[in-house]
């Protein structure tokens, strides 16, 4: 997994709430057996017309935001299915950080596993960042994970909360499975003990 330390980039304001995973990546693109290549399909239905041409009004189609690495959006971002294709798609598009007032649990979780930083800020802060990036798209936003801050020029700075374990993994690009394997003995001990207590869980009749 790619490390996340400091990110300075263009922020795109996506003024919608409840952006669900069907909007982020519609199901016809879930048939892939790969993790990559989904970027061109991100936000497909709100980004392209039926004939494949771009919808000029969609924020990421506007010249100023085409290279955005940060997305600012409304509440409950990523609700819906568990598809990890959603973070894969926005990552493949080039987004490394999403700022919202709230996230759906599974999307939030999945983001970390892919080196995307989801940041929750209070509504006023999100509104301010959203308005400013609408008014002055060229001024980049800087996300400093170590310091837990979001800054925009010298105009404003907000600090955000993050779980220390997740922060540690993201800063160091750590792979969860590798970490868990260090606990192998614990897992073995758990199984040995549990087998005594709930023997029926250790055979399935097949």
């Amino acid at each position: 997994m790619k490390k996340f330390t400091v990110l300075t980039g263009i922020a795109a304001p996506l003024r919608m709430m409840n952006i669900d995973t069907d909007i982020i990546i519609p199901k016809q693109f879930l048939k892939t057996i790969k993790r990559t290549g989904l970027g061109i399909h991100a936000f497909n239905d709100i980004r392209y017309n039926e004939d494949g041409s771009e919808k000029p009004d969609f924020i990421l189609n506007k010249p100023a935001y085409r290279t955005a690495e940060i997305l600012i959006t409304g509440e409950n971002f990523g609700c819906g299915s568990s598809r990890e294709h959603a973070p894969w798609a926005i990552l493949d598009f080039g987004i490394r950080c999403v700022i919202a007032t709230s996230f759906a649990d599974i999307f939030y979780n999945n983001s970390f596993k892919n080196g995307i930083l989801p940041i929750v800020l209070p509504p006023e802060a999100v509104e301010q960042l959203m308005t400013e990036s609408e008014n002055n798209p060229a001024l980049p936003l800087t996300i400093d994970l170590e310091k837990q801050t979001v800054t925009r020029g010298n105009q404003c700075s907000f600090s955000f909360d993050i779980d220390p374990f997740r922060k540690h993994c993201l800063l160091n690009g750590l792979d969860d499975i590798g970490l868990t394997e260090q606990n192998k003995t614990h897992i073995k001990n758990f199984e040995d003990h549990d087998r005594q207590k709930r023997s029926w869980l250790y055979r399935t009749g097949e």
Partner: peptide, 20 residues
Amino acid sequence: FGIGTSEVEHVLATQTLIQK
């Protein structure tokens, strides 16, 4: 509960998940 694909891989390999 539902999990993402990275966690599917984690469970397949370790039969555990990291959770709060």
